[in-house]
């Protein structure tokens, strides 16, 4: 009999304890980030889509050579002493964001950027041509690149 009452009391008590844990969550701010509207905080060293300083690039093909998945396609044209980029395409269906391309670049003109989302209806839409100056992640001379990866900035 004593045990019977004890079990009822235990049941009631544990239910109340459970409620006291769950109910306060109703009044807490939800943890969810409303992603397309709210952008999460991206750390400065995020390895996202590349930032590319077009005027510094000397078309030396180092980045294309080291890329483990061969996703950088470069075409250039020699004009006098300089090379002019015709195409600098990175195929983001292949790129694995390893940042290896940033390391050998003699002019430090290819860097990893903070953008982490890229969508398209076709595969071609995620092949981005950095030789196109209209590209928002292609930077011309004198422009400040946001978030250059600190460890690569060898001064």
């Amino acid at each position: 009999m004593k045990n019977w009452f004890a079990r009822i009391w235990h049941g009631l008590k544990t239910t109340l304890i459970g409620l006291s844990i769950t109910v306060p969550y109703l009044f807490r701010k939800p943890y969810t980030l409303q992603y397309p509207e709210e952008v999460p905080d991206i750390p400065e060293t995020e390895r996202g889509l590349h930032n590319f300083e077009i005027d510094k690039c000397i078309a030396c093909y180092q980045c294309a050579k080291i890329c483990p998945v061969d996703c950088i396609a470069i075409e250039d044209e020699i004009k006098g002493k300089n090379a002019v980029l015709l195409k600098f395409e990175i195929d983001y269906t292949k790129c694995l964001f390893c940042a290896l391309c940033c390391e050998p670049c003699p002019t430090e003109c290819i860097l990893m950027g903070p953008t982490f989302d890229l969508v398209g209806y076709t595969r071609d839409e995620v092949i981005i041509d950095y030789a196109d100056r209209e590209n928002p992640r292609t930077w011309s001379a004198g422009e400040q690149i946001p978030y250059p990866i600190a460890s690569f900035a060898r001064k």
């Binding site: 969550y25 109703l26 939800p30 943890y31 969810t32 409303q34």
Partner: peptide, 13 residues
């Protein structure tokens, strides 16, 4: 909505 909020989510919105 309650289910969402109790699990730290937002529920249908």
């Amino acid at each position: 909505k309650f289910a969402g909020r109790m699990q730290n989510r937002r529920g249908p919105n």
